[in-house]
Design a protein around this nucleic acid. Structure first.
Lengths: 143, 143
DNA sequence: GTTCCTGCAAAAGCTTTGCAGAAGA
DNA sequence: TCTTCTGCAAAGCTTTTGCAGGAAC
């Protein structure tokens, strides 16, 4: 985790983005928690250590990190914006029972179609929904 | 278009969902406009013919149609919920310049991964973003 | 007569905006 | 010092909720 965090702060420095304490906290949270958090989850966690933290700061920071190419939005569900550190190709699976979002490997380069040959594609997202193994097992126990 | 509309109203009848005038208008709009509309676009269009229409009714109707399996949500962008009639496998491409959403053919059945072998997958979404050919051409004219 | 729709108004969430004071370079 | 961040309060949007009147069956 240490490596990723350092790599990211370097990236910010190169873009002349100030490494303020709040921004580093947000970055740290995202590096340590691969749970695709909402703004509120980030806020609640950091707010425990930084008493008079504002949600506005979380929003600001996320927007800056997105613009800098370090963070991406997961819009798997309407009205539930989530965020994650930009990493290599993967898809997202959301369990509709427990709400957990799982990553799964996926080679997005193979996802091509002749129809889009004249389009400039900058971003690819794959979202699946269903029931995860844990919830499936629970459903069997209590049918 | 006539065939799709009839097929859908039949589906509602079979589920004992009343075919009220507002619901039929929403269904008609979605069948005739494959532009992946927002709630507001649907509202504004129908409201021209039905003066004291309420946004609440559009929301209610869409929720009913989603539950009945006739309509699906497109959550390609956070805070911009869009809707479409459920049709065969396809992906969505959103142009970040003009905002248009394009459909493209895609065989979702081939989108599988060993990692999810124990998951029950009920829904697959593929969202691309970038610039559409029209906007690319315009950018060349005015660089 | 009973059930279900519809529209209105209000409330609830989430996100953005404007600004003054604080912190960082 | 000068620039940029931060937190607060308020505003803006979208969506949901509660309810009374009305339409459909």
């Amino acid at each position: 985790m240490k490596h990723l965090y350092d790599f990211l702060t370097d990236k910010l420095k190169k873009q002349n983005i100030r490494l303020s304490s709040r921004r580093l906290k947000v970055l740290e949270y995202l590096c340590q928690n691969s749970n695709h958090p909402t703004v509120d989850q980030i806020y609640v966690s950091i707010q425990q250590k930084v008493p008079n933290l504002s949600r506005t700061t979380i929003y600001n920071t996320l927007h800056i990190l997105i613009k800098a190419g370090l963070v991406r939005v997961i819009a798997i569900e309407d009205h539930e914006t989530r965020y994650e550190i930009v990493t290599k190709d993967h898809g997202h699976f959301k369990c509709e029972k427990c709400g957990t979002i799982f990553d799964f490997k996926l080679d997005l380069a193979t996802l091509v179609t002749e129809e889009l040959i004249n389009f400039q594609i900058t971003d690819k997202n794959v979202y699946f929904k269903g029931i995860c193994p844990n919830c499936l097992a629970t459903a069997e126990d209590h049918p």
